[in-house]
Design a protein around this nucleic acid. Structure first.
Lengths: 218, 218
DNA sequence: ATAATGAGTGAGTGCTCACTCATTATAACA
DNA sequence: TGTTATAATGAGTGAGCACTCACTCATTAT
């Protein structure tokens, strides 16, 4: 197993969602996720998948008409793994943590997001590279996620403005790229250590909030 | 041609570097870059490459011992395309633009970087996805680029501190992730329009510098 | 005029691929 | 238990793969 990750198992992360999938189907998807993330989609053969899933090659094609269909099935899984974490409306989080500054709330959200990415790293690594060459899948994912993210960033910015913690000069678009970018870069190159990540994220958000501050000098 | 990009040609971007490569070799690499970026490495056959390069399939193997070797040749090309842009020492840039605030200088650097990424998008798209499965290539690239980037970020921070534009609370590591992240996210999801990009980058750097300001309230 | 060269060729090679299907094992019900 | 329905199997299939090699022929040396 490369890069020290343990084997991914959908049941650990998405049990509620896949609980009435046939057992065989889950085994195929699990095997495929792990192989695709190790060697890539095209370099993985259906024979290998069947071996890893501990069944005959023919059985795969009872449950999936083509090899492509296995990959395509992963996209809704990925969306489902990520969306609910984003979905918990930010206003709720703000309500829950009513006293705290918006910057701390953002820091919590970012850390949460980094953990999602880490937990579903293999699923991401299976699907994302192939998205580059499959526009249909790509749009399925970005159209279902990007506007929502922008919406929630907007909400938090608005909340921050009401509380006079954030000035009017900050656009949702730039803010989104700023946050998304940090998450992306940190999940690729950042520290794997949880405590270090917490420190880094807090320092990052601290700086960001100072830049966004309502009373920042022009 | 997907996503509207024109065909990539090494000679446009790296003529000085490849000028004494044999003509056939350049044609193979060009064909491969364009095909890999469209369909991926594994999904591209050597027969297709030969067709696109307008030569017999056998001729490819006179110049490259294996298909893998074509990909491996692209890594130094990619490093060479990106490194010199980073290499122009930041102190030089600061000296050249002596009067301007560090934030503006950063904005210029970031825009420059976005253009490099845009110009070499196909080369990046050919190589980056395969890096995920090839640790050797991955290390070749990150070890040759990341420490250098951190070094230059450090330099600019130091310069900013001397000028009292940046406070002592900003670490090179977080700053690097912040800048790298924005570049990454913006090159993936950001506006393709040059003028809009300039505006977004300036707004981003404006916010960042306010956050980094020496006199930011704690 | 003749000989030597080697870049270029593309049919051929053994092999692997995604996918099929006749056969066998298991389950369901009488 | 016997009969039927469903599930699982893995050898088989043609297509396509990366790579080879015997051969061609324009160019150069003699």
């Amino acid at each position: 197993m490369p890069n020290g990750d343990e084997n991914y198992d959908i049941l650990t992360y998405l049990e509620d969602y896949v609980k009435d999938y046939p057992d065989k189907e889950i085994r195929v998807i699990n095997a495929a996720i792990n192989l695709f993330s190790e060697k890539g989609f095209s370099a993985t053969s259906t024979k290998e998948i069947s071996k890893r899933a501990d069944m005959a090659e023919g059985t795969i094609f009872r449950y999936f008409p083509t090899k492509d269909a296995i990959l395509e099935r992963m996209v809704p899984l990925l969306i489902h793994a990520i969306k609910p974490k984003l979905e918990k409306p930010v206003k709720d989080i703000i309500a829950e943590r009513a006293g705290e500054p918006v910057g701390d709330i953002f820091a919590t959200i970012i850390l949460d997001r980094l953990n999602i990415i880490r937990g579903n790293g293999r699923l991401l690594k299976s699907v994302l590279p192939e998205l580059m060459y499959r526009e249909a899948l790509q749009q399925q994912l970005t159209q279902s996620l990007l506007p929502m993210i922008r919406g929630y960033v907007s909400q938090v910015l608005e909340e921050g403005r009401k509380r006079a913690e954030i000035g009017p000069h900050v656009s949702a678009n730039t803010a989104m790229h700023q946050l998304l970018g940090f998450i992306l870069a940190y999940s690729l190159f950042g520290s794997k250590d949880e405590a270090q990540a917490k420190k880094d994220v807090e320092e990052f958000m601290d700086g960001v909030m100072k830049g966004w501050a309502a009373n920042a000098q022009d």
